[in-house]
Design a protein around this nucleic acid. Structure first.
Length: 894
RNA sequence: GGUCUGUUGGCGCAGUUGGUAGCGCGUUCCCUUGACAUGGGAGAGGUCACAAGUUCGAGUCUUGUACAGACCACCA
């Protein structure tokens, strides 16, 4: 027989070719105007110079499955790709690169440095898109957007100006989180709190009047240099009398007041707190309340500055701490040091300790933006999947603080604010102003800072669609249908998109949020550089194929849960792809010369010729299609994937193909023709059903099928109700009849397996049907039973002589039969006795349990009628099987 | 301190109106049987973390406990 396709699926040979063909054919494109209903997803934009990791692979596969499914289901499906300039990340990477050539950012200056970053972006900006193509992502590439594109930048400025005019963006000197190594402010969200084992230092602050001293407990002795007061609780009897007096601030020439504030906890430490408003958020509030000065003792790199005094200036925080402690000890002002565990903020980017730092920054006032953003989630206009994230989201929205949006970086959207050198007025404008709007001076200087990357991300759902123009794209695709992302950016991104969407589009940005878990390694650890346990998706694609990778991710992703990825699993699903390949290979071999009847697939007068197997597989196809439809509708991707896996492997391959082999080789022509049609049509449906999960192999095989459309990617998605005519070719009885045949074959195989009868050995089997239905079914499936049971001599009729025979009772519904295999001379009878005894034990346990329940009056009284009936039937069945087996064992022993 | 997850055979997980536990991988035995050894057939393996409660009946509902993980807040 000529080779139709190879006996191995080779993804390398297929994937690139198929992807290019799809892309060239325009199959990924959505229309701005269409009669089809719209369906849209915006891709969470990855870092423009980043590379694809497993997290993306999962995130993208979910989206691509949804997009492909909807596209095939008749939607105008649009998946909008984009990349993010990723301010801090990209700037840091480029700075690190520069270092290799001895250059520095500051040395180059703003303009030259930005040129370097753009060069870097040109070099790597397409890498992630190329990798996404390897995954099979069916994005509408013509719509790809970068956050620094002119259109998006325009949206950013428009939003900034609009919020500024409303008073919802403001500038001011505030205490912010500051990253020393990065020399920029960061938002609250970019601070990671870690539990640190440190020390609590008890320091003596001498009273100015010389009458002893106060003991102050602190974890940060170096900030003492910036103290402006010490505080006690107003009702603390120990210190009440001292309120209003002053203490000498150690190591300085200053004296500072003793103030009273209820912020102080009498029970904690010594009950006396040093107040350092420029270096602690609580102290900052106390300082404001008491109108205290604010003395910053750190510079932008978090080194002690001139305010700290000449002997400390230039020291790092840690060096400063050491020296302050030494000096205090020398003066006998350090009472004691005790171990103390406290949490310390770290910069999520640089890992450095974050310092509260007093500086001029821009903020978004979140109060009025948060209220409607809460409401849309409370009302269910936007739904989280899994739903439990709702609470997390709402909790954060309730305690939300103003958002620091300025960054002391160069890579990003520069803040559209200009300061007048003459009158100091701030002009905020979408386009560069030529003069000060207050004094008309032309001496203007733009703010040096850029916006937090997440500011532009917050506008993504509409800025990418041409806003502020009322474009056709916006009209058609906003709001988007679903957002797919990880839980790590619910606050950073999701919440802010909802706020901005509601403010500027007066509508939610998406209706549903699918939150997926993290891809971990096989031991459940986070994939990280330091552990060196990261798995590169592209490498996996090269080794196992994109379909296998996608299918693995889908099969493992239970709603919202982290998933443990292992190459072993991937290998398993690679094998599944190969299984499909070979099932098709077999089919194509048996479909040679087959032609689709002129009357078409459905019009064929098949009914009379369809075998039981054909009807059964048609019914099973309908069943799996129903499960897949329901699973996808409910975002249960693993359910969908597993249902297809089970159907293809354990129903289509294990049984259907095996059943039809005899028909294909020696069936009557009309019977064979009918089966060929069912085989071809079933394969066609399987390819379509599987396509969103494994797009490459399904498209490749689909193109080889005798029944096919133009492209699998654009063909209809098969469901249990969009092709009733086909599915109705099966009759309800088929499932029951096949079950009886399957059970019979399994019973024969069980006897063979347990008794170690060689697979090559053809045995003698007698089937004794106990009712007419069984008799009929067995008779018409004789060949299948002979072939699959590897039987040399099969008789259907009476029990005959049971001596030295294996016996297995089979019950399906109300039909019964006995499987009898004479064993004499074939095997050791003792083995068979063991096998039967094992079954008897099991049956006895069942009978005991069922009897117990059915003898319970309360059960009979309270349980639903059908439950009681079902139990009774099961009991009857078990009892009759038990009787048969007990008899059988006597015969074996005799 | 608060919130949210999770705890089911060796491993990873299903189990959606409460009715005597399923799947995949692994494992054991047999087999190169004309699609596929990336394969086929047959097995073994679980008192569903623990306790109490509701119920005729609980993996499934309620409460509590333990352990694991995540997040938020605070910690002078």
């Amino acid at each position: 027989m000529s080779e139709i396709i190879s006996d191995r699926y080779n993804p390398q040979e297929v994937e690139g070719r198929i992807y290019n063909w799809w892309e060239e054919s325009g199959y990924f494109k959505a229309q701005d105007r269409s009669t089809k209903p719209p369906y849209s997803i915006i891709l969470p934009p990855p870092n423009v110079t980043g590379f694809l990791h497993m997290g993306h692979a999962l995130d993208h596969t979910i989206q691509d499955v949804l997009i492909r499914w909807k596209r095939m289901s008749g939607f105008n499906a649009m998946w909008l790709p984009g990349t993010d300039h990723a301010g801090i990340a990209t700037q840091t990477v480029v700075e690190r690169e520069l270092k290799k050539t001895g250059e520095t950012r500051v040395g180059l200056g703003r303009e030259k440095f930005l040129e370097k970053v753009w060069d870097w972006k040109k070099l790597y900006g397409d890498r992630i898109y190329r990798q996404m193509r390897r995954m099979g992502d069916s994005c509408d590439w013509d719509r790809a957007v970068f956050t620094l594109d002119e259109g998006v930048s325009k949206s950013v400025r428009k939003v900034f100006v609009s919020l500024y005019k409303k008073g919802w963006i403001y500038r001011g000197q505030r205490l912010v989180n500051w990253s020393g190594p990065l020399e920029t402010a960061i938002s609250d969200l970019e601070v990671e709190h870690k539990s640190i084992k440190g020390s609590m230092f008890h320091i003596k602050y001498p009273l100015e009047n010389g009458a002893g001293f106060l003991i102050v407990a602190t974890t940060r002795p170096e900030t003492l240099l910036g103290d402006v007061a010490v505080a006690v609780h107003p009702e603390d009897p120990r210190y009440m009398a001292l309120i209003g007096q002053r203490v000498k601030l150690p190591l300085t020439e200053r004296t500072i007041p003793i103030i009273a504030d209820t912020y102080v906890d009498k029970e904690f430490g010594s009950g006396v707190v040093k107040i350092t408003p420029a270096h602690d958020f609580n102290d900052y509030k106390v300082g404001k309340r008491h109108n205290l000065p604010m003395i910053s003792v750190l510079d932008r790199q978090c080194r002690l500055n001139e305010n700290a005094g000449a002997s400390y200036k230039g020291l790092s925080v840690n060096e400063g701490r050491k020296k302050v402690l030494e000096d205090l000890r020398a003066l006998d002002l350090l009472e004691k040091e005790e171990p103390h565990v406290h949490s310390v903020g770290h910069c999520s980017r640089s890992g450095a300790v974050v310092e509260p730092f007093l500086s001029e920054q821009w903020f978004v006032k979140t109060e009025h933006l948060a209220t409607p953003a809460k409401r849309v989630v409370e009302s269910g206009t936007i739904r989280f999947e899994p739903e439990s994230w709702t609470k997390t989201y709402l909790h954060w929205m309730n305690i939300i603080e103003d958002w620091c949006i300025s960054r002391q970086l160069w890579w990003g959207h520069r803040i559209p604010a200009w300061y007048c050198k003459d009158c100091d007025h701030t002009t905020v404008s979408e386009t560069e102003p030529s003069y000060c709007e207050k004094c008309q001076s032309k001496s203007l200087e733009q703010d040096e800072d850029v916006l937090d990357t997440w500011f532009s991300s917050a506008l993504w759902p509409f800025s990418t669609m041409g806003w502020p123009e009322e474009t056709e794209t916006l009209k058609t695709f906003y709001p988007t249908n679903v957002l797919v992302t990880g839980h790590d950016i619910i606050f950073f991104w999701v919440a802010r998109m909802i706020m901005m969407g509601l403010e500027f589009k007066r509508d939610v940005p998406f209706r549903q949020i699918i939150i997926h878990g993290l891809v971990r390694d096989s031991q459940g650890r986070k994939m990280s550089k330091s552990l060196n346990n990261s798995i590169d998706p592209v490498e996996m694609i090269e080794k196992y194929g994109a379909d296998a990778l996608r299918f693995t991710l889908m099969a493992l992703t239970a709603s919202g849960r982290d998933l443990k990825f292992s190459e072993q699993r991937l290998e398993g699903y690679r094998n599944f792809m190969n299984k499909i390949w070979n099932a098709t290979r077999f089919s194509l071999q048996n479909l040679q010369g087959f032609e689709v009847p002129a009357a078409g697939v459905k019009a064929l007068p098949l009914k009379g010729h369809l075998s039981l197997y054909d009807q059964w597989i048609i019914a099973k196809t309908g069943e799996v299609e129903k499960i897949v439809r329901e699973s996808l509708e409910n975002n249960r991707f693993s359910d969908a994937a597993n249902a297809i896996y089970h159907f293809v492997w354990h129903e289509f391959c294990d049984w259907y193909i095996e059943f039809i082999k005899p028909i294909m080789s020696e069936g009557k022509p009309e019977e064979k023709k009918a089966t060929q049609l069912v085989l071809a049509q079933t394969l066609n449906r399987v390819m379509r059903l599987l396509h969103p999960f494994a797009p490459f192999i399904t498209e490749e095989l689909y193109q080889k099928l005798p029944i096919k459309g133009k492209a699998c990617i654009t063909d209809d998605y098969p469901t249990d109700d969009n092709d009733r005519e086909w599915l109705n070719l099966s009759h309800a009885q088929a499932a029951f009849e096949i079950d009886l045949v399957k059970e019979t074959i399994s019973a024969i195989r069980n006897i063979r397996g347990e008794n170690r009868i060689k697979p090559g050995e053809k045995i003698t089997v007698r089937l004794a049907p106990q009712d007419e239905a069984a008799q009929k079914i067995l008779g018409s499936n004789r060949t299948a039973i002979e072939v699959l049971g590897r039987i040399g001599d099969l008789s259907i009729g009476n029990e005959g002589n049971l001596s030295k025979c294996a016996l297995a009772p089979v019950n399906v519904g109300s039909s019964k039969l006995k499987v009898i295999v004479p064993l004499e001379g074939l095997v050791d009878i003792e083995e068979e006795i063991k096998r039967v005894e094992k079954t008897i034990e099991k049956l006895k346990k069942d009978v005991l349990g069922l009897n117990g329940r059915l003898n319970n009056e309360n059960f009979i009284k309270n349980a639903a009628e059908d439950v009681v009936e079902a139990d009774k039937a099961t009991l009857q069945q078990a009892k009759s099987q038990l009787a048969a087996l007990e008899e059988a064992i006597l015969r074996l022993k005799s």
